[in-house]
């Protein structure tokens, strides 16, 4: 039974976290909204003026915005597809009687701990380089022409790198969920002689549904903000080929010094992320009650 005293104590203990997070969220966000309504260029200080929704009009009608939006959606969608499908397959494999499973598991999750700048540069140079990269050598062995990844398939190259980083996350979560699958159900299905395919679609996949949802939502949140991988490999190019919303806002703010326009873009990014966030928060909330 919580007494008045413990309740007050609880509030005091909670206050620093709540206040700091509130400030962290509301002050910069409020400033972003305010800047987004100004004409404000860092190269031209002292000339700020209120322009209403003009920045949004510019940003949302800029062809660069549509290119960036398309790139963002393609990037997020492709990485999700690769990591979820690949993650399910690898998790199913890891759940098998593998000799030395612990070590295999370590190898599979390792990419998740590699910092983004390292994975991007190692892939770009050591693997994807059109002349000396390992992929070019493998293509040569197979009698295929070497691919100039970052020139001809820039967005695909980024997708592969990011998918490699997130595949372990999906695998790990799906494997955790898979291991809570009822052993008895497995045995019963085996005795009934249920074919492996229908066993998977009728029993395993529904069991994984929740974990898959979690993977999709959490990855989406992070994938909407992919930045370092683009910065160190393509710088958003060639042209706008690998510019996503996050990179576009960065370029507008810190390369073109257009604070107003970048802020409008930032708010658009916040709105996009919030659409996903609502679903995730609901899902987690449901779990909290259970």
């Amino acid at each position: 039974m919580a007494t008045q005293q413990t309740r007050t104590l609880g509030r005091v203990l909670l206050a620093p976290s709540v206040i700091l997070l509130f400030l962290w969220m509301i002050v910069p966000l409020g400033m972003t909204i305010w800047f987004s309504l100004l004409r404000y260029n860092l190269l031209d200080p002292g000339t700020e003026s209120f322009v209403g929704l003009l920045n949004y009009q510019y940003f949302l009608t800029d062809p660069a915005f549509f290119a960036a939006l398309a790139n963002t959606l393609i990037l997020v969608g492709s990485v999700l597809a690769i990591t979820v499908i690949g993650g399910i397959l690898i998790a199913l494999l890891m759940d098998q009687p593998i000799f030395g499973r612990g070590i295999v598991r370590l190898m599979v999750i390792a990419p998740f701990f590699v910092m983004p700048t390292v994975s991007a540069l190692v892939w770009k140079n050591l693997l994807m380089h059109p002349v000396s990269g390992l992929f070019a050598w493998v293509a040569g062995l197979l009698g295929l022409p070497a691919i100039d990844w970052f020139t001809n398939w820039p967005l695909l190259s980024i997708i592969l790198i990011v998918a490699w980083q997130w595949l372990p996350f999906a695998t790990l979560i799906l494997l955790t969920a898979l291991q809570s699958f009822d052993e008895e159900q497995k045995e019963a299905a085996e005795m009934d002689g249920t074919p492996a395919i229908s066993f998977f679609f009728l029993l395993v996949l529904p069991h994984l549904a929740r974990a898959i949802t979690v993977v999709i939502l959490i990855e989406t949140i992070f994938l909407l903000s992919v930045f370092a991988e683009i910065l160190v490999t393509t710088g958003g190019g060639p042209g706008l080929a690998t510019t996503n919303i996050a990179f576009l806002v960065y370029a507008q703010a810190l390369l073109q010094y257009d604070v107003g326009g970048a802020s409008a873009g930032g708010i658009v990014a916040v709105v996009l992320a919030n659409i996903v966030a609502i679903f995730l928060v609901r899902l987690v909330g449901k779990n909290l009650d259970a």
Binding site: F227, A246, I267, V281
Partner: peptide
Amino acid sequence: STKMMPPVGVLVP
């Protein structure tokens, strides 16, 4: 939900 805010949304300020 505060963790869901994309960092780029507050980069400028």
